[in-house]
């Protein structure tokens, strides 16, 4: 069969079978050839995607589509043109590798949204991870990306936000759009309580000065809690750690609180010190996709037999607790 193959003479059902053997980039390419292919792919394939605005990438398994500004095309010159969003937009493209397609746009932010919209519809996809960590992406684009995803799902595995352009209200609106099940990461300073629900297994907040004991207590179901730049006091920490000690945090595996208001001699559970100066050992554990390390901890055994390593660094104001 050396002559061109009349693939679209196959029935739609048979074409569906053929497409099952192709990866997301190959499917994207064949969808550019025919509307029939597009319809079949969107009616059949259902990939989970990971969206990361900081790199402009939309990833399906190990296959990524990256929206970049034209200023980057000198590095990797375009080798073709592809159309997007129902043939209304076109862009130059270049293969970085067989798994990575670069797509060049005058405005990378609008381009990112266009590619995302195109792929969401082509693959009938849901999003497992949404990273809005491009600090300068205009808020209306961030919000329209969220809207696009929110139209297809109310739950998401992982959400990460960092922006200098979005308001507290914007961020709060975004976080409240989804029930985050695995990981919530916020790299943003809030002058006041943004009213965010903590539903995920893992919470990371880089500027957590607005977090009070009430917020911390609402994380008692979490497996991992990491709060930096906190203003939690000795009393707050004692209260929370005692809650854990009495079994109120059944899932907690790792806690890290960095607070600059903790006193230098902070202690808990009646332990004489929270730093083992003699056995300078360190412990590492893989939990919820991260591998935290705890240095020079002391061991604490709860009444129910649960053993944890606990450490307080008086210089950094870091309290760490790792359940072993």
């Amino acid at each position: 069969m050396n002559q061109p193959f009349t693939i679209f003479f196959l029935s739609s059902v048979a074409l569906r079978h053929v497409f099952q053997f192709l990866n997301p980039i190959e499917l994207f390419e064949i969808s550019q050839c025919s509307r029939k292919a597009t319809n079949i792919i969107s009616g059949t394939k259902r990939f989970e995607m990971s969206v990361e605005s900081s790199s402009g990438s939309i990833v399906f398994n190990n296959y990524s589509f990256m929206a970049l500004g034209r200023n980057r095309q000198a590095e990797y010159p375009p080798t073709g043109i592809r159309v997007f969003d129902g043939n209304t937009e076109s862009a130059d493209v270049c293969y970085l590798s067989e798994n990575e397609l670069l797509i060049y746009w005058d405005c990378p932010y609008i381009g990112f949204k266009t590619v995302l919209s195109h792929l969401v519809h082509l693959f009938n996809s849901t999003t497992s991870h949404l990273g809005l960590k491009n600090v300068s992406m205009p808020p209306h684009i961030c919000l329209s990306i969220v809207e696009l995803i929110r139209n297809r799902q109310t739950e998401i595995d992982s959400l990460a936000i960092s922006s200098t352009t979005m308001s507290v209200e914007d961020i709060s609106r975004i976080v409240n759009q989804f029930k985050v099940s695995e990981s919530l990461e916020i790299y943003q300073y809030f002058p006041s309580d943004p009213n965010i629900p903590f539903t995920s297994k893992s919470v990371y907040i880089s500027s957590s000065s607005w977090i009070t004991l009430k917020h911390l207590n609402s994380m008692k179901h979490c497996t991992v809690i990491r709060l930096r730049e906190s203003t939690l006091t000795d009393e707050d920490m004692t209260s929370f750690l005692e809650s854990w000690n009495s079994g109120e945090c059944p899932n907690l595996q790792y806690l890290l609180i960095r607070s600059n208001v903790l006193s230098k001699n902070f202690k808990v559970f009646g332990l004489p010190s929270l730093q083992d100066e003699v056995n300078k050992q360190w412990f590492e554990k893989r939990i919820c996709g991260i591998s935290p390390i705890i240095y020079c901890p002391v061991e604490y055994k709860r009444d129910d037999g649960v053993v944890a390593k606990i450490h307080f660094d008086k210089n950094d104001g870091d309290i760490q607790l790792m359940v072993m």
């Binding site: 193959f5 196959l10 053929v18 053997f21 192709l22 190959e26 390419e29 550019q32 080798t79």
Partner: peptide, 12 residues
């Protein structure tokens, strides 16, 4: 699968 092989690794 035989047809998919004709398309595999190719651009538009």
């Amino acid at each position: 699968e035989r047809i998919a092989r004709m398309l595999r690794g190719k651009n538009t």
